[in-house]
Nucleic acid binder design. Structure first.
Lengths: 198, 198
DNA sequence: CTGTCAATACCGACCGGTTGGTATGTTGTC
DNA sequence: GACAACATACCAACCGGTCGGTATTGACAG
């Protein structure tokens, strides 16, 4: 008889584990979630989890990669087009807001635990994130020096007013809410770019 | 012999415990910090901690109150003056940025753990925070309807671009850094209010 | 088409260590 | 000698992680 689950299961076991971990980390935080809770929600056992993942931390790292990997690739595509600062900044805001909203649970889990993760495994990922921010700040700085953007606020403040929204997006954005992510992105871009109008 | 610490200690034991907990929670997060770590850093034992606090959670609640209590009182004072929206919003931004910066460690601990705390003890505090946000949004909405502020972005987005900065302030603000909190507040207010200029 | 065999997928009992919390001192002060 | 202010010793529960085992699968041989 047996079970032949590999074919019959609704989704791959690995994916179920990751999905369960994502929900729980987003709800309770990483440290407050036990491996037992994860496997219970995923419908597997600890043996199964440790068959696919080397450690509990690997689950977080995987989410981290999912969130930042796509965003970083999109950033390079947008900047690579070489268009004017206003278009570029608007495209970046749109991508990060819509992209974050599309992975809102992963973002919630990651953004909360980001500061606490300070071992060598995550330094590469944090360096990626820093590069993202530096790119945006550099873009704003260059445009301000060229007189395209007004120097009403420093590049640091402008970039943080953007990232601050995406970092806290999970506390108020609802996928089934009245305002779609694209609308949020547009309003934020309008607000920031009006403020920066030379 | 004995120790007669009550008088000789550099600071009250209760304050030392709270300060140690604040630092550790800000660095590692609440759940990842053990009571043993707190008492070690504070230079006391667990018996001492549980003499002053009923539970580990009480430490977080105390920080929560310290952060939001002052802010909420200041909000009422500012709004109570009945001045024009531009002055009022600028005063609010200045107070929340400078106030958050002044308690940056407490803010880091609280802002990270806020979403995960969902028991009945914290609902009152979360209600206070929601009232704060609602006040700011209402202020913006009224001013936009009166034509004083431009409707370039909805009150929700504007308020979140402000709170997003303060929520993530702990990730980049340094008390001994080159930019004082008051300057950050002014730039943020300039950016937002320029965007809202009718 | 069937038998063999190694690899993969997964289970569930178990491990040493740590957790938040407590019960019981001990000590100085009024 | 009552009481606040702590220290010390200790507990049951739970933690992340391991391990020996088993069911299932796929490749290959004949």
């Amino acid at each position: 008889m047996g079970r032949s689950r590999t074919v019959a299961g609704v989704a791959g076991v690995r994916e179920r584990i990751l999905a369960a971990a994502t929900e729980l980390f987003a709800e309770q935080g990483y440290a407050a979630t036990s491996v037992q809770q994860v496997v219970d929600r995923a419908g597997v056992t600890k043996g199964g989890l440790y068959h696919y993942f080397g450690a509990k931390e690997d689950l977080l790292i995987e989410m981290y990669r999912a969130v930042f990997g796509e965003r970083l690739a999109a950033l390079d595509r947008i900047v690579g087009q070489g268009r004017d600062p206003e278009w570029t900044l608007r495209a970046i805001i749109d991508d990060i807001v819509v992209g974050t909203a599309a992975m809102i649970k992963e973002s919630a889990a990651v953004s909360r635990e980001l500061a606490a993760m300070d071992n060598e495994r995550t330094q590469r990922l944090q360096a990626d994130w820093r590069r993202y921010q530096e790119t945006v700040r550099g873009l704003i700085r260059d445009a301000q020096e060229a007189g395209v953007f007004a120097a009403v606020a420093s590049p640091e403040i402008v970039s943080w007013s953007i990232f601050g929204v995406t970092n806290s997006l999970h506390t108020w954005y609802r996928p089934d809410g009245p305002k779609p992510a694209a609308a949020i992105a547009e309003e934020l871009a309008d607000l920031v770019l009006t403020g920066l109008r030379a």
